[in-house]
């Protein structure tokens, strides 16, 4: 019998304590970020889709078309092409296509590039209705960015 009352009182108390906690949190300010009215800035290491890094002065891609990134990628997301103009010493990049639909953001491509030619972007607003919107022409993006 005493166990019955003990449980009754203990139980009632635990319920009251629970109500106290929720009301305490209710009067506290909200913690959510009101996306899309507010947005967060991603941390420097945030892994968005990859993008080409251009030379600081000329804006031309750092890439030397060695193909290491393409080989490192587990999901065959990267297809690139380059050509060697007459008389030039280095190859120049003619196209760099990233199929972001397959990318797992593992970072193996960025890691494998010894020329600092690719990096992660900080883009995260990447929702859309069509699949082909996520096949990025990174070379064009770079050109647009460097204007």
């Amino acid at each position: 019998m005493s166990g019955y009352f003990k449980e009754l009182f203990g139980g009632t108390k635990s319920l009251a304590v629970g109500l106290g906690i929720t009301i305490k949190y209710m009067v506290k300010p909200v913690v959510t970020v009101q996306y899309p009215h507010e947005t967060l800035v991603m941390t420097p290491r945030f892994r968005g889709h990859i993008e080409l890094v251009g030379n600081e002065e000329t804006g031309a891609p750092n890439c030397v078309v060695c193909g290491m990134c393409q080989k490192a990628c587990p999901s065959n997301c990267i297809s690139l092409a380059g050509e060697k103009p007459e008389g030039a010493k280095k190859k120049i990049l003619t196209s760099y296509i990233l199929d972001f639909t397959k990318c797992s953001l593992c970072g193996l491509c960025v890691e494998s590039c010894k020329f600092e030619a690719i990096a992660f972007s900080r883009d995260y607003n990447l929702a859309g209705p069509r699949k082909d919107a996520y096949v990025f022409d990174l070379k064009k993006r770079l050109e647009e960015k460097s204007g």
Binding site: T22, I23, Y25, M26, V27, K28, P29, V30, V31, T32, Q34
Partner: peptide
């Protein structure tokens, strides 16, 4: 709204 604020979000807005 009540649920929202108890859970520290805003609810419909």
């Amino acid at each position: 709204k009540v649920a929202g604020h108890i859970q520290r979000r805003i609810g419909p807005k």
